[in-house]
């Protein structure tokens, strides 16, 4: 079999893999739709319960006033007790709402990634079809090399990995969520991986040629995540950029998470200088609190 025939055969296998990938993306999209529907329902339910709780709190306040006015002390005590329970319920509702919003945010991220993956698959499929078509039309002369035209065309293939991909080093440990406190420079956007993401496994997949290379964005695509690469004189590294389980942190969120880690997750014990730092907003602390909880999962395989 000549190089060209062999290439056509391999391209057909790639096309089959792309079809399989597309089916999986489609199933995942449907699954996400279902989760999104459940989250929407949960959100509406929380809203209704919140309204009921607020109404109950108002009613209890009126009842408390009435019982105090009538000197019904034991009843007033019961009403106060009930108010405290309603207050506790409201706090739980707020916490539940935060969890639901976080889940909705993560589902949104995954859905965007799926959309990008689907686009990449379409591009790859088009490139494969074009490659098969052009290779099939090439003359099979030129010996075992398959002809210089074939060689030239093969070098242009969109999904062909850069020649140096086998030397790429692992991503830096600062991209692991629980290592974030050790970083020394915060004036850069940082992408961190949730604990269940195995960055080293992704890097191994890239080195072994299992990733797609997007020539346009100059990034690797593997396991639903994108990686940028730096390569100079053998000092090489991969950088997680976006995708499943990768979260971009702003400077404020980054500093808030550092403060939460130093305080062992206790918001009341956050270091004073972090509290007084005007560059950290209230929303940063809320997001940092959620991320801090995620750092407490197992290092690998503990998908929330």
């Amino acid at each position: 079999m000549s190089v060209v025939e062999d290439s056509i055969s391999q391209l057909r296998a790639v096309r089959d893999s792309i079809d399989g990938g597309r089916t999986q993306v489609s199933s995942a999209s449907e699954e996400l739709e279902r989760h999104q529907g459940a989250i929407d329902q949960a959100s509406r339910a929380i809203e209704e319960v919140s309204n009921s709780t607020a109404t109950a709190a108002d009613g209890l306040e009126q009842l408390a006033s009435a019982t105090r006015a009538l000197n019904y002390d034991s009843t007033a005590a019961s009403v106060e007790n009930a108010k405290e329970r309603v207050s506790n319920a409201t706090a739980h509702l707020l916490a539940a709402r935060q969890h639901v919003e976080q889940a909705a945010s993560e589902i949104g991220l995954v859905r965007r990634t799926l959309g990008e993956t689907s686009g990449t698959l379409d591009q790859s499929d088009t490139a494969v079809e074009e490659a098969i078509s052009r290779l099939s039309s090439l003359p099979l002369s030129g010996g075992a090399s398959g002809g210089s035209g074939a060689r030239e065309f093969l070098s242009e293939l969109r999904f062909k990995l850069p020649r140096n991909h086998m030397r790429l080093g692992n991503p830096h440990s600062r991209h692991r969520l629980r290592k974030v406190a050790k970083s020394k420079y915060v004036d850069k956007e940082n992408t961190v991986a949730l604990p269940y993401i195995d960055l080293v496994k992704d890097a191994e997949a890239i080195r072994s040629g299992k990733a797609l290379w997007n020539k346009k964005t100059e990034r690797y695509h593997v396991n639903g995540r994108q990686y940028a690469a730096k390569d100079k004189d053998g000092k090489t590294r991969l950088y997680p950029v976006a995708g499943d389980g990768l979260i971009p942190l702003t400077s404020g969120e980054y500093k808030a998470l550092q403060g939460m880690m130093l305080a062992g997750g206790d918001r009341a014990k956050r270091p004073e200088h972090f509290l007084r730092n005007l560059s950290i907003g209230g929303g940063d602390w809320d997001r940092a609190a959620v991320l801090y909880e995620l750092t407490r999962g197992d290092e690998e395989g503990d998908r929330p």
Partner: peptide, 14 residues
Amino acid sequence: VVEEAHQKGWYPDG
């Protein structure tokens, strides 16, 4: 001066 390859991937907007 070194001309690094694939720098577009280094930036959020390419």
